[in-house]
Design a protein around this nucleic acid. Structure first.
Length: 300
DNA sequence: ATCCGGCCGGTTTCAGACGT
DNA sequence: ACGTCTGAAACCGGCCGGAT
């Protein structure tokens, strides 16, 4: 297989599956092309021949003269390519992805961190709903866990975003600058309704979740939203709690377990790339092959 | 207990430098 | 004048220490 053909394969994936912008696609393809030509000067290339040493040598020798920022960018592009190979061809490149490429721990491990059912229940039970703060924070947790929102998206939720009659909520200003409309579960809706009726202070603010103490009625920031969940996790005694993204992962896990299609989950979670979704749900990939067989397909 | 702000690492995008 | 490509910026989520 020629390197040019391989780059075309990568480009097709970036365009059709990852749906990245043209600039991103071009820059990723170029970085990978240079990398591949450097590793296989004899042009006896095929994807499965790529080894950890290729990457290591490339980073330490060829890229030794570039700035750290540039190296970081190139690493990102190579990683993107390797993940494409894993996703598209089913070839495992654990050793490459485990190289110290300054990636988040949960991604290096190749396993998403999510809560077990008992941990989820413990977390939700850790909110004292006899006081306004507990009601508010419980509603936040349900938005994260039921809707699979990022904490920044929860912090930006506005009263204007809810269509109560239709039972939907629209998420704006997301990471990918697009909008998406989600169905609002009855339980989630009731929780938010309870917060609005019995907990939320009088304020002109349209942002849903507001502060109770300092700066009463002002919007909560992303960090406050995160902190409410973190404190609940401490109360619930959940060890290894790493952050609010665990709830997002948990939402993805539950959808997978309910047989929801991967593409649909990507839409709900707001991922432009199915690849991102597959990272969130990695561990279930293995489980589900045995248990349910609802993964789209098993690659060899 | 709650909140703020600064810092960090990772990813994607884009402005402008560069070559033709 | 125009297209290509690099590297910096923008954005995001996470962590932590200190203030209230």
């Amino acid at each position: 297989m020629s390197i040019e053909a391989e780059i075309e394969r990568f480009r097709k994936y970036l365009t059709e599956v990852a749906k990245l912008s043209d600039n991103t696609i071009v820059s990723q393809c170029n970085a990978v092309k240079i990398f591949l030509y450097c590793c296989f000067p004899e042009k006896d290339f095929s994807p499965e021949k790529i080894t950890v040493d290729h990457v290591r040598v490339y980073l330490t020798n060829t890229l030794r003269h570039v700035s750290n920022v540039t190296r970081k960018t190139i690493i990102v592009r190579i990683r993107s390519y390797v993940r494409f190979l894993e996703f598209n061809d089913g070839v495992k490149f654990d050793k490459i992805l485990k190289l110290p490429m300054t990636s988040p721990v949960w991604k290096q491990a190749g396993i998403s961190k999510y809560l077990t059912d008992s941990e989820t229940n413990a977390l939700l039970a850790a909110y004292d709903q006899s006081n306004p703060t507990g009601i508010r924070d419980y509603a936040i947790a349900r938005c994260l866990k039921d809707l699979g929102l990022r904490c920044s998206e929860v912090a930006r939720l506005s009263l204007n975003d809810f269509e109560w009659l239709e039972g939907t909520v629209t998420i704006r200003q997301t990471k990918t600058h697009s909008e998406r409309s989600l169905p609002l579960h009855a339980v989630t809706g009731k929780t938010i309704e309870k917060y609005l009726l019995h907990s939320r202070p009088d304020t002109q603010e349209r942002i849903l979740f507001v502060r109770f103490k300092k700066e009463l009625g002002q919007p909560m920031g992303t960090s406050q939203v995160r902190n409410t969940v973190r404190r609940a996790a401490i109360r619930a005694g959940i060890e290894n709690f790493t952050g609010t993204h665990m709830l997002t992962h948990t939402a993805a896990k539950e959808m997978i377990n309910n047989g929801v299609d991967l593409k649909m989950i990507a839409d709900i979670l707001g991922h432009e790339s199915i690849e991102t979704t597959s990272i969130y749900t990695k561990i279930n990939f293995m489980e589900l092959q045995d248990v349910a067989g609802i993964w789209p397909e098993v690659r060899t």
